[in-house]
């Protein structure tokens, strides 16, 4: 399989699934708004629909919430990340921005909240909840592998999927290949966030679901192929 080809093929699959979901989602949206119309005041309904209309038009929108200005709601965090997310199908590169004053784990929790509500068919989280503590402690446990974060600033993250290795190799051999080639790996938190945002933004499918040990070993982001043998994939920061 050529470099990045697997990632591209996966993205195409996700695109096909999206086509079927759009009309169902549109019906749910209208149904949900109609239901809300009975409960909400005219002013509140008008405010929410105004935000919804602007999102549908693809306009920049600031989602207001009950939280204090310096405190972002999980929806605001998720919206900002999803709005900024782009995936280049040709290169397999994902780019996204995490808003200022939001830690990685806060971003993951916000994505999980969104994912559970809007992708209830999936029996998993956007980021496995049991891994959140591990992600939180990464910088102190593995300072060499983790980029130092400045949470006071919004940060743009770029993660590129690169496929290397050969089919049929076992995990030990492939880890050896990775060690020999000394690639630059992305921070495991970046890998997890890229996969989670992609899943939330689109159909809920995990584009990177074949990752073998994503995040569980700092410096390694391995993939297994599905039924057609094993290949190694790694993500690195450009």
């Amino acid at each position: 399989m050529p470099t990045t080809q697997v990632v591209i093929e996966k993205a195409k699959e996700v695109g096909k699934i999206a086509l079927d979901y759009v009309s169902q989602a549109a019906s749910k949206l209208v149904g949900s708004a109609s239901e809300k119309a009975g409960d909400l005041s005219l002013a509140e309904m008008s405010r929410r629909l105004d935000g919804a209309l602007r999102v549908l038009r693809g306009e920049e929108v600031s989602i207001s919430g009950a939280a204090a200005p310096e405190q972002k709601t999980s929806l605001q965090i998720t919206h900002k990340m999803m709005e900024s997310y782009s995936f280049d199908i040709k290169t397999g590169t994902s780019t996204f921005t995490i808003p200022a004053n939001v830690t990685d784990v806060e971003a993951m929790k916000a994505l999980n909240k969104y994912f559970r509500k809007y992708h209830p068919n999936f029996k998993r989280d956007a980021v496995y909840a049991r891994d959140l503590d591990w992600y939180e402690n990464l910088p102190t446990e593995y300072p060499t592998y983790c980029q130092k974060r400045d949470y006071s600033q919004a940060r743009q993250i770029t993660v590129t999927g690169v496929v290397k290795g050969e089919k049929g190799e076992n995990r030990t051999t492939e880890e050896g290949v990775l060690n020999d080639e000394s690639p630059i790996f992305s921070d495991p938190r970046d890998q997890a966030l890229a996969a989670a945002i992609h899943a939330c933004k689109y159909t809920g499918e995990d584009l990177f679901k074949d990752l073998w040990v994503r995040g569980s070993v700092p410096g390694f982001a391995l993939c297994t192929g599905r039924d057609d043998g094993v290949f190694v994939s790694l993500f690195h920061v450009k």
Partner: peptide
């Protein structure tokens, strides 16, 4: 607008309505 982008906007609009 791609199908993926349509889906994303629709879901986000729903999230705002049910905020």
């Amino acid at each position: 607008v791609s199908e993926e982008e349509k889906l994303s906007r629709i879901k986000l609009a729903q999230a705002i309505i049910e905020s």
